[in-house]
Design a protein around this nucleic acid. Structure first.
Ligand SMILES: [Mn+2]
Ligand SMILES: [Mn+2]
Ligand SMILES: [Mn+2]
Ligand SMILES: [Mn+2]
Lengths: 146, 146
DNA sequence: AGCATTATGTAGTCCGGGCTACATTTCACG
DNA sequence: CGTGAAATGTAGCCCGGACTACATAATGCT
């Protein structure tokens, strides 16, 4: 048994566990975020968001997209009628806007510190889902002072 | 003044699909990375890596940890004998070192741009898995010139 | 209008990654 | 030593997120 002298060095397990739990939660909501972002973009640019187009942009089959859209509907983020294209609920639209803003900020930030554009786009697609408000704010400060 | 590149405004679907596919791949390997990182740390600090300790640090049940360790073994990253604690293969050890280095860099970088330490630790736990070599290099350059 | 093509939807499968419940083994200690 | 607590392992369930294969609806073209 070691006397407990060193206070801070030990990385208390509960904290670490909480961090990993956070990361798991973020991972779980990442897909929904990408979907609403894409749906919002399709609605804005094309006027409609068809499952096939959503699927193509994600690089998955239409069956996968349709099933996921079903979960979005279940979770109150989207709605649609058979064969008629997908729309966002108010909640879905708000989420999409937040997600889009974060996406743009992350990409811009990475580019600003010298990451090649292509890579910035690619990395951002994953990183964005793990950027907290505090970190996003830091990114924005950096961009402002650049 | 920024050079106006005006390259692809259109975000060609195949590229976007590839980016999402990349993010999916990264997401899929994230868990294994966290495991080997924790196992390496336990081995270094305690001399042994027990499933229960691994589970506690991740905030999951021991049953979950044991099943995941089974996948690590299947994938040639770890090995263990019944009731005896977990060890890393050469491949596992190498992965752990890369992962640890990246983790430290990401945390240091976030802290350097003004993210509060606690938040930096939390966000890094997810972000680290989506940081490519090019982005990691950019982080290191930033830290060097800071 | 009729038919071929495309889009949409459904069913069924697979694996990852979480859980609970229970069985078994190890180990500390009285 | 023995034995009870702790660790380990197993079984079985659940849901997410991917796929293929097939069925059905919508659409566009001749
Ligand atoms: Mn994304
Ligand atoms: Mn995005
Ligand atoms: Mn991590
Ligand atoms: Mn880590």
């Amino acid at each position: 048994m070691v006397a407990m002298h060193m206070v801070e060095q030990d990385s208390a397990p509960p904290d670490e566990a909480a961090r990993h739990a956070s990361a798991r939660t973020a991972r779980a909501s990442a897909l929904a975020q990408d979907y609403v972002e894409i749906i919002a973009d399709l609605l804005a640019r094309e006027g409609e968001a068809r499952p096939t187009d959503i699927a193509r942009r994600l690089g998955v089959t239409h069956a996968t997209a349709i099933k996921t859209i079903g979960r979005l509907k279940r979770d109150g983020l989207a709605h649609s009628k058979p064969y008629r294209g997908v729309f966002l609920t108010e909640a879905g639209h708000e989420l999409a806007q937040r997600v889009r803003a974060r996406h743009l900020t992350v990409v811009a930030f990475l580019a600003a510190i010298g990451v090649p554009p292509q890579v910035a786009e690619a990395d951002a697609e994953g990183i964005e889902h793990h950027v907290s408000d505090a970190t996003l704010a830091a990114f924005e400060r950096f961009l402002a002072n650049a």
